[in-house]
Computed example of a mutant assay.
Amino acid sequence: MRTVVLTNGCFDILHVGHVIYLQQARELGDWLIVGLNSDASVRALKGPARPINPQDDRATVLSALSCVDEVVIFDELTPERLIRDIRPDIYVKGGDYTEANLPERDLVTTLGGVVRCLEHVPGRSTSALVAQMSNSGRTWQETRRISE
């Protein structure tokens, strides 16, 4: 019997923070499923200028990572339907969440799963990369200092 791990997100511009996070998530189990927000849900969550990359491109890039076993695109703003359908053994979110403030926590535990929140890589985010691109080529470190 294998341990199924589920995570989800926009993964708009894949960066080292995403890769480390996904590798750590995969190490928690035998099968990593990534729930990928559709273009429509990314726009609803992040605004009309996002996503930068269309959902099929994002899914292809994620699928190419050896730590990712499956990618599932979903249209909803939250992954609750996906959690109900997959019933993961472990549901993983990044370090910008805590188990206490994770809305999906109760659903996951009710279905018999556990929640894990992993540390994120400081200074690495799609938002910082987008800001860097729009700030005349400043480095991500400069952009981060400006945005703090």
Rank of each mutant, 00 (worst) to 15 (best):
E76W: 05
V72M: 14
L32V: 09
E104Y: 04
A131S: 13
I90W: 06
I33Q: 11
E148S: 14
I13W: 05
T126W: 11
V68D: 10
H120E: 12
I13L: 15
P51G: 09
P122N: 13
G29V: 02
R84I: 15
Q141H: 03
H18V: 10
I83P: 10
L32D: 08
T7A: 10
F11R: 09
L32R: 12
K93E: 04
E27M: 14
R116V: 15
N8M: 09
G123F: 07
L65G: 03
G17L: 06
Y91Q: 01
Q55A: 15
A64K: 05
V61F: 11
S147D: 10
P88N: 08
G137D: 01
N53D: 06
L107R: 04
R87Y: 02
G17E: 02
E142G: 02
L82D: 06
P79H: 05
Y21C: 08
I86G: 01
P88F: 00
P103Q: 10
E76A: 14
T3Y: 01
D12N: 07
I33R: 12
V68R: 12
I86F: 05
A25I: 05
I73L: 13
G112M: 06
Q141C: 00
D106S: 13
L22C: 13
A100W: 04
R2G: 06
E142I: 00
R138V: 01
D96G: 08
I52N: 05
V72P: 00
V19Y: 09
L32C: 09
